[in-house]
């Protein structure tokens, strides 16, 4: 076999490899958006389910006498939704988003302050009595 043939064959193989690589690239490109969309969602879903389990176990340990304060605290912390409102108000240029953000911040703040304060009042009553 002369060197030219070998060179030609090598070139042909190289071309094939290139075609394969190109195909692989196209496939990867086609799959990317799906994976990109699914991955963060799956991650968030995992976090969500794990948090449900944590919540389940923690709440069963709450003593029944403190179920009212529990509602007070959960009510206050569910207002963490304020984070979404702050992002909308601060990051956006849209007037509509700013207005909705402001309304949401105001409502959630009533809850945050009111919820924690009323829980504090309740819990202050559960102090061990000296007598």
């Amino acid at each position: 076999m002369n060197p030219i043939d070998i060179a030609n064959q090598a070139a042909a193989r190289a071309n094939e490899a290139l075609t394969l690589a190109e195909q692989a690239r196209r496939l990867a490109e086609a799959a990317a958006p799906v994976a990109a969309a699914a991955e963060p969602f799956l991650l968030l879903l995992t976090i969500f389910l794990l948090a449900c389990f944590v919540g389940y176990h923690v709440v069963w340990n709450v003593t029944p006498a403190l179920h009212s304060p529990l509602m007070g605290v959960t009510n206050a912390i569910s207002s963490v939704i304020v984070v979404g409102a702050v992002l909308a108000t601060g990051l956006s240029d849209s007037i509509a988003a700013k207005i909705f953000g402001f309304l949401a911040v105001t409502l959630a703040s009533v809850n945050i302050f009111g919820g924690f304060m009323v829980t504090r009042r309740m819990l202050a009553m559960f102090k061990k009595k000296g007598s």
Partner: peptide, 17 residues
């Protein structure tokens, strides 16, 4: 909005209720 804190807290409160 893809926010971890809201998801965790929401799950806690949801489970509690």
């Amino acid at each position: 909005i893809g926010n971890l804190l809201l998801i965790v807290t929401g799950a806690l409160v949801g489970a509690s209720g």
